[in-house]
């Protein structure tokens, strides 16, 4: 299976959602003034490099709820 034989129309929504989650997480990290659980740069890296799981972890346990 080459790079071109993947049906991109099928995979595109998946990648799109992953990007949306990632962008929301990073934008929120840059905007928020409250402390997070653990250093902020760590959460940026986690959100960027672990697709889907990273942003979820940030939203559930990284964010301090006020």
């Amino acid at each position: 299976m080459g790079f071109s034989s993947i049906n991109w129309a099928l995979v595109a929504p998946l990648i799109g959602i992953e990007l949306i989650l990632m962008i929301i997480a990073v934008v929120d990290l840059s905007k928020t003034t409250t402390q997070t659980n653990g250093p902020k740069w760590m959460w940026v890296l986690i959100s960027l490099f672990f697709s889907i799981i990273g942003p979820i972890l940030y939203f559930t346990i990284g964010r301090k709820h006020t």
């Binding site: 929504p13 959602i17 949306i20 989650l21 929120d28 889907i52 942003p55 979820i56 939203f59």
Partner: peptide, 18 residues
């Protein structure tokens, strides 16, 4: 405000598509 409205449905959609 804490984006739950956005990310919770998106996560389920991702697992549904996957």
């Amino acid at each position: 405000r804490n984006y739950k409205v956005i990310w919770l449905p998106l996560v389920f959609v991702v697992f549904g598509l996957l």
